[in-house]
Design a protein around this nucleic acid. Structure first.
Lengths: 187, 187
DNA sequence: ACATTTCCTGTACGACTGTACTAGAAATCA
DNA sequence: TGATTTCTAGTACAGTCGTACAGGAAATGT
């Protein structure tokens, strides 16, 4: 009963590097050998830590979700109301810092829609996570149905605007539409 | 100066069948041999008619765009106003008949965002086509800037809602949000 | 020191990829 | 009929894919 202990940090570091590579090089053509070459390790090292390729994809998606959630969620425990929460989310998602990660996000989203059984974890969270946050932002006194309807609308609009921005790069037009929408939430 | 004439209809029929296959089997793993087997032809037949694989992908995307545009655009030359136009678009896009095609649409959209240089034709049209239609629906007297802003918002919201619907299948919640949004356009 | 487990590598194998090449059948004009 | 072009199929080739296998180095408990 002994042996070398499992190095969990090693796997976490590798996963972070793999996610970085995926964000930059895309997700559809991902394969062991180019990733391993970019990280300076052998393909068998990656196989050893992640098992099958499908398991590595799951790990990548989970890590990506952690990153995007951490980047857009507000660490402060305050409850600033729906309008302010939506405005914060838009500012953080539309900024150029997270652009590459959101391109990957939508690439995964689209692929998940065509192969739902292979991306159940992603699809279960892709709407529910933000729904929870935006419903909470409306306070405990809001009517649940209208709160859900409003949260749905906010998520859809902001994501649709982000799709437009990433596709066209026309920040001026998209930003004007976003401000118009966010303005309606203040009332 | 003779020879067998080029059979353009043959290519068009093959393309339609290939698009059908792509809608059903997805777009990321598309390759010659499975498609040819499904159509009952040889791989070299497909190569002969489409050239390189990248050219076939372009042809598929173009044909898909024609289908979606024909399915959502209103053949009547009337000008029913923005609210009615948006409502028509939502009804036609959210119906279950076109679900598989829109799953493919978003899969292509996501992939195009990660490899923009390979999908310039798609990205050039993905917003502009609907923009033109929704700006026209507002009539020639509308202020161009506000018309563009409103059209941008309508496209983004409807596409975001469609993303939600396809991901969650929660038609009741999404439909309620859509009606709430479409109601604001009537004023 | 020794057994045991993990970490990492190199190699190998079958499956699949895009596509170039060859060749026969079909359809046209001269 | 004959020349010419298209259509279709079969074959082959180099490359990539995921991953199974064997073995050496490192790190632990006994």
């Amino acid at each position: 009963m002994a042996g070398r202990p499992i190095d969990h940090r090693r796997r976490a570091d590798l996963l972070d590097a793999v996610v970085d590579y995926t964000v930059e090089h895309g997700f559809s053509d991902l394969s062991w050998r180019p990733v391993a070459a970019a990280l300076g390790v052998s393909t068998t090292t990656l196989v050893h830590h992640f098992g099958a390729k499908e398991q590595m994809l799951e790990a990548i998606l989970g890590r990506l979700r952690e990153r995007l959630f951490a980047a857009t969620s507000d660490p402060s425990g305050e409850r600033p109301g729906l309008a302010a929460a939506a405005r914060t989310v838009w500012i953080r998602t539309s900024g150029p810092e997270r652009e590459a990660e959101f391109r990957l996000f939508f690439a995964v989203y689209g692929r998940a829609l065509q192969a739902p059984s292979q991306f159940t974890a992603f699809l279960d969270h892709v709407v529910a996570d933000w729904m929870r946050a935006l419903v909470d932002a409306q306070g405990p006194d809001a009517d649940p149905d209208t709160a859900a309807r409003t949260a749905t609308l906010v998520i859809a609009t902001l994501r649709g605007l982000l799709l437009d921005l990433l596709a066209t790069g026309d920040r001026e037009r998209v930003q004007a539409a976003a401000e118009s929408f966010l303005g309606t939430l203040d009332r």
